[in-house]
Design a protein around this nucleic acid. Structure first.
Lengths: 222, 222
DNA sequence: AACATTATTTTGAATAGTCAAAGTTAATCG
DNA sequence: CGATTAACTTTGACTATTCAAAATAATGTT
């Protein structure tokens, strides 16, 4: 029914409406995210409106219909379960799984998805710390904050990495800044755009630039 | 570089040239196998010739170039490794894996392929008994014969099942006629189109029709 | 040779997805 | 309020893949 292209549009619309904290996604953002020229997004979105995947209001943007939302969640679920499977079962590197999952999410059947999920013990989060939608299409909302927003002295647990760049992920892996690990914020120097922190419990101290600290999302510890 | 469609054409050309014991595959056979009208195959094949995947001679058919052959073998390798993985790692049923692998063979990277292969212990045959091309694109040739061609009294090992129909595969599974198992041919009644055989060593006796016996390929035992 | 049959190719048209570039609309600013 | 700008849509064109139906070639038959 839905082509790979349509699945990708749906997934990105879901992610964007979440990021923008707005049900309606403007065309510009969508086109940028899909890496197509704006006219392409308009054309595509009009067709998807006709097929009932979403609601398109010219010059305002799109919002997913119930069917669109369901399918978007399923694609996202496949993506994240596959990522987890690639790391856990096939021992692929954290930093390379995103690309792989991008292709596999459209190729695995519901049955294979479920077998992978079962194999993994039905995980709630993927290796980047992103929540995996359940079989019923529910997705946990957490109250997270960017590491860059943390107060001096706060102890927090790394929850989610909002970036896919392989180099950055490899760096985090090397330094132990992976989802699940705990850190303490030692200082925040706004002038130098620097964050100082240490890992807990091993107490390794390090610095991070502002942009990096914005990509690391944490939950308050305790 | 090569689209999914091109990969599928290449794979089918490889399989057909093998089945027909002829390097050159006629357009009719190709179109039939690809489930397209003949004109579509002609169009496609002309484009693939231009891209260097194959050699097309009007009214004679196609033969793969070195690049075409390489890629066809890689796709076939992915297909068969994936089938094995689905059975071994994800415990899918023998009868349902072909469809799944059909999609996955175009979605997995070389790296994932190799990890699966490693996980499986670099198997030489897939669950249907089809030989898996090696990483170097080599494929073992075996001297097999159809079960329907066997002499009365012969003891043989089932090597390969030349059919993908789920019901048939489930039947074989139930009756123990899977690749690797040994059977003895008790009788062949040409008039009634019947083959009588028994499993070895447990001695279960059974009958098979001619068509079924043609789909089961065996190697002489001993 | 003349005809019929079968295999294959050609032609014309359709769909999905894309880009480049021109045209609109709406918001903003002096 | 009119001019500028930013965001968006429209238009025309292109590629890949497909089908239906007409045209052609090769092959076998009388």
């Amino acid at each position: 029914m839905a082509s790979i292209t349509i699945e990708n549009y749906l997934k990105q619309i879901l992610l964007l409406s979440d990021e923008l904290a707005n049900e309606r996604v403007p065309m510009g953002k969508l086109a940028e995210r899909m890496q197509v020229v704006p006219g392409t997004a308009t054309t595509m979105v009009k067709a998807m409106d006709r097929s009932g995947w979403l609601n398109y209001i010219p010059r305002e943007g799109v919002s997913l219909t119930e069917e669109g939302n369901q399918l978007a969640l399923k694609v996202l679920r496949k993506h994240r379960v596959v990522e987890m499977f690639l790391v856990e079962a096939l021992k692929l590197d954290w930093s390379e799984i995103h690309q792989e999952a991008e292709a596999l999410e459209h190729a695995i059947s519901d049955k294979v998805l479920d077998r992978m999920d079962e194999y993994l013990g039905r995980p709630a989060y993927d290796p980047h710390g992103d929540p995996i939608p359940t079989r019923l299409g529910e997705i946990k909302a957490r109250k997270l904050q960017a590491l860059s927003e943390c107060q001096k002295g706060q102890t927090v647990r790394i929850a989610q990495i909002k970036q896919q760049d392989a180099r950055f992920l490899q760096f985090l892996d090397r330094t132990g800044l992976t989802p699940g690990s705990t850190i303490r914020v030692l200082d925040h120097d706004a002038t130098a755009d620097l964050h100082q922190l240490e890992t807990v419990p091993d107490g390794r101290k390090m610095h991070l630039g502002g942009k990096a600290a914005e990509s690391i999302w944490v939950s308050p510890k305790g």
